[in-house]
Every structure is written in structure tokens, then in C-alpha cells.
Amino acid sequence: MTLEDDLRAEGAPEKEFHAGVAACMPRKRTAGGALLRNSSGHVLFVVPVYKPTWEIPGGIAEPDESPRAACERELQEELGLDVTVGRLLVVDWMPTHGVWGDGLMFIFDGGTLPDDFASKANVPAEELSGIRFLPLDQATDHLRPSMNRRLEQAVEAAADGSTRYLEFGRTQ
């Protein structure tokens, strides 16, 4: 079944009982990222040119794009990887902060890459100044605290087979 088949099976969309209500409802930002590691378990980080902190590969979902699809699209765009990501490791709710409204961040298991991947990858210079594998504790100074907490939980979830729900990188 395709998404279009599923939407057809849903039947006609629900009608608005009070015109304009749907347009007034909040929309959450969603993003999908991949926890990619090398054979030593070091995490792959991307170094964006447009902000001072590091990230894992992934990005914000476009309209009508799932977090998984956004993650896979960004892996292709940023790293040239044509992969299907694995299981969901973490869902993290992020509160409104500055110009960014609240959102849901999804981290999927991206699996293991060859140890020399970071040195051989052709990254888009307009978006990234580099990529590198590092143990999480060596990347902490380059991450926002919430990202560091989220990644600690993702690494643990990958190891123990769990999926974790977080709020601002913390378990509840």
C-alpha cells in the first residue's frame, strides 16, 4: 500500500465545522536525524556552515514529508548516502526557544559506516564545512546541551534495543 492508497481508504477528509479553525491550529516543526557510527562506535557529526554548533546528519521535514523521509533525503543530500534508516531510537519534544517554535525531533538508527567514510565523503561546501567521527564525550563542547542529552539517550537506546521519549533531551 502507498500513502495515497491509505489516504483514499480514509475516505473524504473531515469537514471544518467552524470555518477557519484548521488554519488557526498550531503546527509543530518536525525533523529526522540519523545516528551513524563507525566500527569503534564513534558518532558521525556534520559541521554546518550556517551555525556554530554541530549536528548529526538529518534535517527538518518539508510539508507532507515524514521525519523518516526527511532523514533519508538529508542523508542523500548531505552525505550522498542512499539508505533506508533503521528503527526509531528517540523522539524528543523541544520547547519554543528564540525564533524556533516547539517541535518533535526523531533520531533513527543509521547503522555503521566504514571507518574511512568521513575522510572520503564529498560533502556540499555550501552546507557543511566537514564531517567527523568522534566519541560523544569528545563532541560535547560543539553541541547544544539538549542535543548532547538527546544523543546520549539515542546511543543508549541503540545499545539496549529501546525507543525513548524525551522532553528537551531528558527522560520523563
Rank of each mutant, 00 (worst) to 15 (best):
D64H: 07
S66F: 03
D115I: 13
R144N: 04
L136H: 01
F106Y: 04
A61L: 05
A69V: 04
P63I: 00
S146Q: 14
V123L: 01
V90M: 14
G59E: 02
F117Y: 06
T112W: 06
N148V: 03
L75S: 07
A158V: 09
R87N: 09
W93R: 14
L151S: 00
G101M: 09
G101P: 05
E127V: 01
N148H: 06
D82H: 12
V155G: 03
E74G: 02
E55Y: 04
A139E: 02
R73V: 06
V155F: 04
V155A: 06
H97P: 01
G110V: 13
R87I: 13
D141E: 07
E77S: 06
R150P: 01
P145Y: 02
D137F: 09
L81M: 06
V83Q: 14
E62I: 00
D64V: 00
R144M: 08
F106S: 12
A118N: 10
G86V: 11
A125K: 10
T84D: 14
R132N: 05
E77Y: 07
K51I: 01
R132S: 15
M147W: 05
E62W: 10
M105N: 04
L113T: 12
P145V: 02
A158C: 06
E77R: 08
L88Q: 15
R132G: 10
L143V: 03
Q138K: 15
S129M: 03
V90C: 01
Q138D: 13
S119P: 08
